[in-house]
């Protein structure tokens, strides 16, 4: 056990060679703890860890660290997300110490969506450091036991370090190198952007495997079931760096009234099935946006239950 970096459940599951299955939960737009607990409850036992988003899409919500600690109390392991948009290196480091002190063991390092499209576009952003530097910082704090300035940390935070990768953003040719750079910087695991263009993802993961990246880091494939044709077209057109093929939109349309959501789940299940055997993929990150209550059903039908106890 001493060789574990953080001792988190997610790390143990991955290290034991299981196909990981992670979920996601957005904190409430308020201090509604009961609502948060309701969202957390269906995830218990269904996933290995749950990402807790950090003011996602630059919309103010309960802080990710606070929601993560509530999640810990509820017996679900959080994957604490942190964006570089809202904090400078002082706040970043103190929050890292804080979450570790509160029992959090996974952390996902992100740049963060620009505030321009959030609900406070007038705000000043920070971007003191970028996501790459954040990864390196968490690793430095954990492995060297020092702050960014080199000073010693009294009880360093031991976190399992996650990073994001978007295989579909441009320039495509560079994406795998950026992934390699994040791994080099210290990422222990990667969660990808939602995948819809399977062909493009196969190319991406093949390049990653050719470069041996999957041996240095666990790569979890991002899956978000489409709930409606509207959601699909919105993602296709409005979300930068999202690749939704027309064929999928057509398929959802073809499902007919009242059956689109089921078709979306069906597509997600097919994806998960393929990921299970895909070289280089160590698990799936299921981002069921505002659909936490459907996660048990999806997990069941995807054949990923029961979750391993390690």
């Amino acid at each position: 056990m001493s060789e574990l970096k953080s001792g988190s459940n997610l790390e143990k599951v991955l290290k034991a060679g299981h196909f990981a299955f992670t979920g996601e939960c957005g904190p409430p737009k308020g201090a509604n703890v009961e609502h948060l607990k309701e969202k957390i409850a269906p995830l218990k036992g269904m996933v290995d860890a749950v990402n807790v988003t950090d003011n996602q899409t630059a919309v103010v919500r309960m802080s990710s660290w606070a929601a993560s600690t509530i999640m810990c109390q509820e017996g679900v392991e959080p994957n604490f997300q942190m964006v570089c948009r809202d904090r400078n290196r002082l706040a970043i480091q103190s929050d890292i110490l804080g979450v570790y002190a509160m029992g959090i063991r996974n952390m996902l390092c992100l740049s963060g969506d620009h505030q321009r499209f959030g609900n406070h576009p007038q705000s000043k952003n920070v971007y003191d450091i970028d996501s790459m530097q954040l990864i390196a910082l968490v690793k430095q704090m954990r492995d060297e036991g020092t702050f960014m300035n080199g000073e010693a940390i009294d009880v360093p935070p031991r976190l399992f370090i996650g990073a994001a990768s978007n295989p579909f953003a441009d320039p495509f040719e560079f994406r795998v190198y950026r992934l390699a750079k994040k791994i080099e910087a210290g990422a222990d695991f990667i969660q990808t952007q939602c995948i819809y263009n399977m062909e493009k993802f196969r190319q991406f993961i093949k390049r990653a495997v050719d470069m041996g990246l999957h041996e240095k880091c666990y790569i979890l494939a991002g899956v978000t079931p489409m709930k409606s044709v509207g959601m699909a077209t919105y993602m296709a057109k409005q979300v930068p760096g999202m690749d939704v093929p027309d064929s999928l939109i057509q398929r959802l349309r073809g499902a007919g009234k009242g059956k689109v959501a089921e078709e979306g789940i069906q597509f997600a299940l097919e994806q998960i099935e393929e990921f299970k055997d895909m070289e280089g993929v160590a698990g799936v990150h299921l981002m069921a946006i505002e659909w936490e209550h459907r996660v048990p059903e999806i997990a069941e039908r995807a054949g990923v239950l029961p979750r391993p106890v390690v």
């Binding site: 570089c84 948009r85 740049s111 963060g112 969506d113 620009h114 952003n125 971007y127 970028d130 996501s131 790459m132 530097q133 994001a164 990768s165 978007n166 953003a169 441009d170 320039p171 560079f174 950026r178 750079k181 952007q193 930068p240 760096g241």
Partner: peptide
Amino acid sequence: KSLLNGPCGGS
């Protein structure tokens, strides 16, 4: 975002 290790996933 003044990234020194870009591009981010929004490009």
